[in-house]
Design a protein around this nucleic acid. Structure first.
Length: 604
RNA sequence: GCGCCCGUAGCUCAGUUGGAUAGAGCGGCGGCCUUCUAAGCCGUUGGUCGGGCGUUCGAGUCGCCCCGGGCGCGCCA
């Protein structure tokens, strides 16, 4: 629809230029959808943008263009406004054409499967396998997952990857913490994972399953290593009392294609080879007994240690190998989703790729800002040692239970995390996060979808309108119906924009506004004493089919197709967000029974 | 001190990458269910878009300078 309008404006502009003898390239006109109905459907600033080239006043040029555009039946009204805007109101037929396009594409509308075919490696979450995922991890998980869906939908080939840090200090500390719980006299490690239910349960489980390893681990390094591996496995796969990271992610609707292991990078020599390559390139220096990579030569603040004085590697050493490995696997683009507290890390990874002769410009980072928790207005600090972190499992379970539907918690959390820009800090009240089950805005969007589905079901079963009917659309004349079509036609633009900028909240915003428009129309129509479908009495007798010589039936059929288009776009949008699109939603019992008295009782 | 992010309604946040009278949810107040789902709709309340200067037809959006908050500046991850 927008392209169509843009092409017509460009044509009028070109004609005007020719008439005035203006030579050369003209800037592409910028076409905007208007916010106000009185401004028509589209507006363009083209007259203001090119007035200088034409050596005339913007308003004069706008008037000339208006004269040309008025000859085009696509436009019902063309007006010059303000300093030289052209406000365009489209004829109904233009809306009907746009709707036909949506209907033809159906649920695939807006997708661009043949776009770039860029091969993208999307690495996200990558939380250390040392404990359950807590709420803050969820933000990166959801944003990463949705960015993956956005890229899928816009023609990229995405591999979702979880980098398991199974080779470092933190794993050793976890294993030591576990041993301290179950082996008499085993020292509690400094900065370890304290006395909480998680370590307790993990210890009990490990002790029951691998008594031999537990016995030997304190004195035999090999046994310790094997025990560490077991611990990582249990953290990922779960053990009694805790579902494990994989299951938590699954419950959140997050899937991964590849789980790559840091330990494996070391085991098969990829780290060594990457470091050797840096050495061969002359990037490494021995300093203070450690091996340093001179990243300052590539714009970093200071040189970075890759091998420590004690001979151990830093995580940076692994990361060099890991990112090199990802590029070696042939990806056109690497997208890492990181917590914003790691932002200082970007220059050194980029430096590493450059030093290795790899295309660093393919490396991109999405920073996820902190999630800070408050409880009753006061900061709520979470910490491993405090043992009071709110796990994702906990939040999911509570919301599922309160709403009586499995998956409800995932929907609520996904909505919450995707409705905000990821580069802005986010404050969550832990009480609201857990109890906000029934007034979460996600239900608003889902309810809209359920209403559309209910209409379509009734249309099929009680009016005999085929689900894939392709009726004449010209009876659609209600201003709300037409402006909703304009909104539908904007969906591909919203999707493309969201994918390009890696900003899921654009989709949430789009869906919210679409829902609003439909819900508002739905109620307004009733006030106008009209309905989308025939009322129940007429449905039963079939009288609606012949009313007004069939004109009414034609309108009903057109409206049902229109509803189907909205439903399809809706469903597509929700799928992008990984939020369920329920076909029916019944009022929850709490809301059903809500009366002033009942509310007072609860409050008192 | 240096670097990155943020500052928009009482609270949590959007704002189509420079457009017209800045929006939503929650909260407050007042209305709307006899037949398509009231988890809804309508109205109302609420703003010097942190402050200043600049760029131009036009700034919440871009530039510079302040103020305020968060994060980073480890041979931790």
């Amino acid at each position: 629809m927008k392209h169509d309008v843009a092409a017509r404006i460009a044509k009028a502009l070109a004609e005007e230029a020719r008439a005035r003898g203006i030579e050369g390239e003209l800037p592409a006109p910028s076409i905007d959808r208007t916010k106000k109905a009185e401004h028509g459907d589209f507006a363009t600033n083209v007259a203001m943008a090119v007035a200088k080239r034409f050596s005339v006043k913007p308003q004069e040029l706008a008037a000339a263009l208006k004269a040309r555009l008025e000859g085009d039946p696509t436009f019902a009204r063309v007006e010059v406004a303000g300093p030289g805007f052209l406000n365009l109101k489209l004829a109904p037929a233009a809306f009907h054409r746009a709707l036909a396009q949506v209907l033809e594409a159906g649920p695939l509308f807006g997708r661009a499967p043949a776009a770039s075919r860029e091969r993208v490696n999307l690495e996200f979450v990558s939380a250390n396998p040392t404990g359950p995922m807590h709420l803050a991890h969820g933000r990166g998980a959801v944003v990463g997952d949705v960015v993956g869906r956005l890229l899928d939908a816009t023609g990229h080939r995405v591999v979702r990857e979880y980098y398991v840090n199974d080779a470092g200090n933190q794993i050793r500390l976890l294993t030591q913490s576990v041993l301290a719980r179950i082996v008499d006299g085993y020292p509690t490690p400094q900065d370890g994972y304290g006395a909480n239910a998680y370590v307790e349960q993990l210890g009990a489980h490990v002790n029951g399953r691998h008594p031999d390893l537990v016995a030997r681990a304190p004195s035999e390094p090999l046994a310790f290593e094997q025990l560490s591996k077991r611990c990582v496995t249990y953290v990922l796969d779960g053990f009694p009392g805790f579902p494990g990271i994989r299951a938590t992610l699954r419950a959140l609707g997050v899937q991964f294609d590849v789980w790559s292991s840091e330990a494996a990078l070391h085991a098969d020599g990829r780290v060594e080879r990457a470091i050797d390559a840096l050495r061969d390139g002359g990037w490494l220096v021995e300093r203070d007994g450690a091996l340093q990579f001179e990243t300052t030569r590539l714009g970093d603040d200071k040189d970075r240690v890759v091998f420590k004085t004690d001979g151990g590697h830093t995580y940076f050493a692994s990361d060099i190998a890991y990112h090199k490995d990802k590029l070696d696997r042939g990806f056109d683009r690497l997208i890492d989703v990181w917590g914003a507290d790691h932002h200082g890390y970007i220059p050194r990874v980029r430096a590493a790729l450059t030093a290795l002769g790899l295309p660093a410009e393919r490396f991109e980072v999405i920073l996820i800002q902190m999630v800070s928790l408050v409880k009753n207005g006061a900061p709520y600090r979470m910490g491993k040692r405090l043992g009071n972190f709110i796990t994702i499992d906990e939040v999911l379970d509570e919301i599922d239970e309160a709403s009586g539907r499995k998956g409800s918690g995932s929907d609520a959390l996904r909505y919450y995390f995707t409705s905000r820009r990821s580069d802005a800090q986010l404050e969550i009240d832990v009480e609201i996060a857990k109890k906000q089950s029934l007034d979460n805005p996600v239900y608003y969007v889902q309810y809209g979808h359920a209403r559309l589905c209910a209409l379509l079901k009734k249309a099929e079963h009680e009016c005999g309108i085929a689900p894939r009917a392709e009726p004449d659309l010209s009876p659609l004349q209600h201003p709300d119906e037409l402006s909703l079509i304009a909104q539908l036609s904007a969906y591909p633009e919203a999707l493309a924009e969201a994918a390009k900028l890696r900003e899921p909240q654009k989709i949430v915003g789009y869906l919210t506004s679409l829902t609003q428009a439909f819900q508002s129309y739905y109620t307004r129509l009733k006030k106008e004493n009209d309905t989308i479908l025939p009322r129940s009495g007429e449905r039963e007798t079939g009288a609606w089919k012949t009313r007004d010589d069939g004109a009414y039936a034609a309108k009903v059929r057109a409206r049902v197709a229109w509803v189907r288009a909205i439903r399809d776009v809706y469903g597509a949008g929700l799928a992008l967000l990984g939020i369920a699109a329920p076909e029916r939603m019944d009022r929850p019992a709490a809301a059903e029974g809500a009366s002033p008295e009942a509310t007072d009782d609860e409050a008192g």
